[in-house]
Write a protein that binds this DNA or RNA. Structure first.
Lengths: 103, 103
DNA sequence: AGTGGATACATAGTAGTGCCATGTATGATG
DNA sequence: CATCATACATGGCACTACTATGTATCCACT
């Protein structure tokens, strides 16, 4: 059941490349502020995903503005996303089934 | 987001006292075999819950049959169950909201 | 010019959880 | 009497979430 942060990050990256700070904000927004990660929370996750070959990253050096490290989903990340998503749906469904057994 | 096993055990114990082996089977059944814990998985959970004062346990020495350790919910366990349940609903809802943002 | 706040990335360390392997013992069934 | 299901227990590993901490840059305002 582990790796929820990873799954959500993979999911966000399906839309296209993204960088740490932005991903964190999008998760906060899309969860309607139910998930409020600290600043430092996300980077270990991204590091882990890259170590596992699920994402790749490149530095972006824009002419103006802060430099950012953009992460992109790999084909393997795609497959992992699909598997973990299904796993999450099954797991959360199972938990809800247990909880629902007692109204 | 941690403590899912604990929450489910607390939930089962709301119906009344229960013992390890039986709880494990009920979780397996009520989750429609999606959650299949190993034999040894549950006892550390029960131990932890007891350390935290959420359950109490007594040995049952029946005239016939195996002896069992029955666990019972404490008032504090009640409150914790309520809080963790709500937390789970919020969390799983938030995750689903994030995942649903990309169909 | 300078102060503060938001942006942006990074690492180290800790505590907690889930899970497996392993061990022990008893009751039931054939 | 052998085998299987029942039943409890412990130790340990691996992994994850989270926090604290650090560094640096950009922007807005005064």
């Amino acid at each position: 059941m582990a790796g929820m942060s990873g799954l959500m990050v993979l999911d966000l990256l399906r839309e296209g490349p993204g960088y740490g700070y932005g991903l964190r904000q999008r998760i906060c927004q899309q969860s309607h502020h139910a998930l409020q990660w600290q600043d430092g929370t996300l980077y270990p996750v991204l590091r882990r995903l890259e170590d596992q070959g699920l994402v790749t990253s490149v530095w972006a050096n824009p002419p103006a503005g802060r430099r950012r490290r953009y992460y992109r989903l790999t084909p393997r990340g795609q497959r992992t996303w699909s598997a973990q998503r299904q796993q999450w749906l099954r797991f959360s469904g199972a938990v809800n089934a247990v909880l629902a057994s007692r109204s």
